[in-house]
Amino acid sequence: MGNLLEHMGIEKDRLHFSWISSAEATKFVDVVTKVSEAVNALGPNHKLVKNAG
């Protein structure tokens, strides 16, 4: 799924997959930090966005 999204032009770093158990608080924080950094680096997304109206 990620591969096909990337194939049609959605940047790879916008979509992340992870498996975190409810006991893995530090991993959770870690992943969220990395995801936000990666997405921030890409800037706002304009693709697959539908404007209301």
Partner: peptide, 14 residues
């Protein structure tokens, strides 16, 4: 050939 494009080129191609 499509894989070799950058993200925006891919987007525009489709």
């Amino acid at each position: 050939a499509i894989e070799a494009m950058d993200a925006d080129e891919k987007w525009n191609h489709f």
